[in-house]
Design a protein around this nucleic acid. Structure first.
Lengths: 173, 173
DNA sequence: TATTGTTATACTCTATAACTATA
DNA sequence: TATAGTTATAGAGTATAACAATA
């Protein structure tokens, strides 16, 4: 797969009845919007949000094995293979060999991958500015503080990626 | 399809690099979490979030044609057929005939559908309380005010359902 | 000819299970 | 026997197109 669709898939799971006002409704609405806009912005750089997650992690922890990546993002090893295949085809990452264990394939960024993730970092800054544009600096700080307390209460780890959740322990049904 | 999985599907579109602090990251994280919890809570009532959207709308606007529902939620008419099929199988809604146009099938709630959507309404209240538990009443008001301004700036309509977005005008790719 | 509802088909994404090569 | 990587298969979910009945 050389190209990859970068739109956020239709997620009926986030549907909600018509109701304004509630903080949770606004959170769902804005969270979806923010993810959409981020995907649209970074699509111009040729990378999708899940790819970005991997690139970001590889920049600070290069040479990881694919198993380590699967554990880090809590996804199936077979998905890692697909993602890394894509990144290699796009020239953003390369697989290497572990000299001590010939089973493992290490993954590192190429120079182009470095440049791309740098550009993504700049896009993230612009994205943050775009989303929080109507707020003053003080108000942004208040918002971050309130949202941070909600996240802490929800026990969302600081580095938890909603897109990489493991769906195995299904609820309901 | 008698039963329906109610988990939020894996949405790599919401993935984000490891970064705390940013308001947009928190919004995505919390929005996803809120949608997950809502789906888990209402799964006990036997309905999924997209079904809830339809039931909610049908309560206040009963007897809608399926075409009207498709326009209202900005989804394909064929999806409406599937959703209404499910609701009928679960005994939550019934199709009727339009006496003036024999092509259209109207959709209305059954008594059981009414009771279910009432229960969903109560669950929404509990859900709101759960998510905003760590905030005082004043703080909740501030949060809603700030989020409301972000939503207004993003031009998100008050009744826009992120889960029912039409994906046709694709961006990127 | 256009519209409503429906069915059929294809495509994407993902989870699971098999398979290989090493250890 | 266990583990890393890979490939193959199957299952949701959804978009698109084709179709029948009616206007």
């Amino acid at each position: 797969m050389v190209e990859k669709t970068t739109e956020v898939p239709a997620t009926p799971g986030t549907a909600r009845p018509h109701q304004r006002g509630g903080a949770t409704f606004l959170l769902t609405q804005l969270g979806t919007h923010a993810a959409d806009r981020f995907a649209a912005r970074t699509a111009e750089l040729g990378v999708s949000p899940p790819q970005i997650g991997l690139l970001w992690w590889l920049r600070q922890s290069p040479g990881q094995s694919q198993q380590a990546l699967a554990r880090q993002f809590n996804i199936q090893p077979s998905r890692v293979v697909t993602f890394v295949d894509e990144l290699e085809e796009q020239g953003l990452a390369v697989r290497g060999k572990d000299p001590y264990d010939r089973r493992v394939r290490t993954v590192s960024l190429t120079e182009r991958g470095e440049r791309t993730i740098d550009a993504v970092g700049r896009a993230m800054g612009e994205h943050e500015d775009e989303i929080t544009a109507p707020l003053s600096a003080d108000e942004r700080q208040v918002l971050v503080e309130l949202l941070g307390r909600l996240a802490e209460h929800a026990e969302l780890g600081s580095g938890v990626h909603p897109g990489y959740r493991n769906l195995s322990p299904k609820h309901g049904r």
